[in-house]
Each structure stands twice: as structure tokens, then as C-alpha cells.
Simulated scan of single mutants.
Amino acid sequence: MITRCLAAALALSIAMPATAQDNPMRDSPTWTDLQADVIGEMTPLAADGMFRVETPARAQDAGTVPIRIVQTDPAMAVTAATVVVDENPAPVAGTFTFGQDMLPLDFELRVRVNQYSNVRVLAKTPNGLAMDGGYVKASGGCSAPATRDPEMAKVDMGQMKLRQFEPLDHNRREAQIMIRHPNYSGLQRDQLTQLFIPAHFLSEIEVSQGDTPLFSMEGGISISENPVFRFIYTDNGEDALVVTATDTEGNIWRNVLPKSGS
């Protein structure tokens, strides 16, 4: 069985994050102001014993900060999660729902971090809403220049790639999906004209095995350029994963990604 550490070495340059215990969240007046808008009047439970969130203490790249959510109690199913970067211009990075085949959850995504900030996950569990996260030292992620010229980025926008790793125990597999999209935040400048590039990002993503949902996302500008999602799931025998992505300009891409071709 390939361990998580070995599998991470095969990833697309995702650095292994520190655990949230190494860089715990700090008191945040910003979160005090945000909390009612994000979760209403609820007071989230501590995630202790149910799940943990792993973040880097200091990000190597503020535009692609890895966030990993790991369910630590098999009985405490994490069926939905909201990822919040407190100090970002649009703090809610994404809201995710997870199907039965994703449980117990082990899910990683990349976000932008605009300045030193708590990155928190508010997860739906059988015990109610629970929260965990970490404090990330990073800056400039939302305004960092895109890696490609805007015209070139249009050429392969919507292209997708599935990568799968060696099977784990009990039909569990680890996979990685990458979607080509500049995910413009609206805060980046065109390097030639120095004008701001209008916000244009993936707003919805759905991933399934045949007709069986794995996960879905409602996202915003804090999701990284060329979004990458790495996750463990139970293989139900379908030949492919189906990915549907929609962006804020109404473009819709639907790709069937064969498991055997990854």
C-alpha cells in the first residue's frame, strides 16, 4: 500500500502541509465580524476527535496553498464543509458536499491567501457543525499575476486531467483531478496593459462515478488558478469519473475521465 507521504511525493508539486496543531488558529476580529454571515448564530464545536485540517505554517506559494481535510473518526461522517480564509477579500473560498463513497473523508484543495490569515473549515458532522483550521503566513495570493497570458489561457480552458495512484485497502483509491482555468480573482493586472483583469472563475464543480456523486463545490475567487483536488474514495466499479465544471461566464465543461487511462 502506498502511504500518504509517498503518494504526496508523486503529486503535482503539492508541498506536504503542517498539521493544524503546529500552527493553530489565532484570535480573529475579522472572524467575529464574518461569523454571522457565514454560519448565522451557530457556535461551532471543536473538531477534536472528528476531523482535522492540515495547512502549511508558511506557504511556499500564496496562490496555491494546500488545505487538507481528514476525517479522524469513522463514525463522524463529514458530509459538507465550508472553507474560509478570514483575511481574503472574498473569505469563503468554497462550499463542498461529499457523497458516501468519499467517506471517511480525506480531501485536499488549493486556495489563495492574500495576507497572513486563519484558514478554517466548518464541517457538517453527526454532532453538528464543527470547526478546525490553521494560521497561514502568506501574502499576495489573490493579486498574484496569472501564470499564463490571458489569450493563451483561453486556449485550454476547461481541459481536465485525472491521475490515480495505487489502490489502497478495501477498494479505496486515491485520485487527483486538475481543471485548467485561470480563475481570475478580479485583483490581478494584465502584465501588458496594467489594467485589472475582470473576475472570471469556476463557480460550480461536480464529480461523480457514473451517476454516483463523489463531491461538488460552489466556489469563489479564493480557489487557486488551475484548481486541483486530491481525494480518497471507494471505487464502485464504474469505468470513469465524470467531471462537470461551470464558470461565471456561463461556460460548462463535462468530461468523462477513464480510470484506466490515468
Score class of each variant (00 low, 15 high):
91 P>I: 09
76 M>L: 09
64 T>W: 06
81 A>S: 15
74 P>S: 12
89 P>V: 11
43 T>E: 13
63 G>S: 15
79 T>F: 03
70 V>M: 05
82 T>K: 12
46 A>N: 14
81 A>H: 08
74 P>L: 04
95 T>K: 13
75 A>E: 13
56 P>D: 08
91 P>L: 06
69 I>M: 12
68 R>N: 07
52 R>D: 12
72 T>I: 13
83 V>W: 00
56 P>E: 10
74 P>V: 05
83 V>E: 00
110 R>N: 14
66 P>R: 03
61 D>T: 05
41 E>M: 11
86 D>S: 09
79 T>L: 06
57 A>G: 15
57 A>N: 11
103 L>E: 12
89 P>H: 10
98 F>V: 00
108 E>R: 08
69 I>L: 15
107 F>G: 01
71 Q>F: 01
73 D>E: 13
66 P>S: 10
87 E>Q: 15
61 D>L: 07
78 V>A: 05
44 P>Q: 13
54 E>W: 12
71 Q>S: 06
96 F>S: 02
84 V>C: 04
58 R>I: 12
105 L>T: 03
68 R>G: 02
58 R>A: 15
77 A>K: 10
92 V>L: 09
61 D>G: 06
108 E>P: 02
98 F>D: 00
41 E>H: 11
75 A>Y: 03
41 E>T: 14
109 L>Y: 03
61 D>Y: 08
92 V>T: 14
87 E>H: 11
82 T>C: 11
43 T>Q: 13
40 G>C: 11
111 V>Y: 02
90 A>F: 03
84 V>I: 15
101 D>S: 10
84 V>D: 06
98 F>A: 03
42 M>F: 11
47 A>T: 08
56 P>M: 10
71 Q>M: 05
94 G>E: 13
103 L>T: 10
81 A>K: 04
85 V>W: 00
66 P>L: 03
58 R>S: 14
83 V>F: 01
110 R>G: 04
50 M>L: 15
68 R>I: 02
85 V>C: 13
108 E>F: 03
55 T>C: 12
54 E>R: 09
71 Q>K: 07
61 D>K: 05
96 F>W: 15
81 A>R: 03
76 M>P: 01
90 A>D: 13
61 D>H: 08
53 V>A: 08
64 T>F: 07
110 R>A: 10
103 L>W: 04
76 M>R: 14
65 V>T: 08
56 P>Q: 10
70 V>L: 09
91 P>N: 10
108 E>Y: 00
83 V>A: 00
51 F>M: 08
90 A>C: 10
96 F>H: 08
101 D>E: 13
64 T>P: 00
104 P>Y: 07
57 A>D: 13
108 E>Q: 14
106 D>I: 05
100 Q>L: 09
101 D>A: 15
59 A>R: 03
66 P>H: 06
56 P>R: 09
82 T>A: 13
78 V>R: 01
102 M>N: 02
78 V>Y: 01
78 V>L: 06
105 L>K: 02
108 E>G: 05
58 R>M: 14
43 T>V: 15
52 R>I: 14
60 Q>N: 12
68 R>W: 03
57 A>Q: 15
98 F>Q: 04
111 V>T: 07
43 T>S: 12
93 A>Q: 06
48 D>N: 13
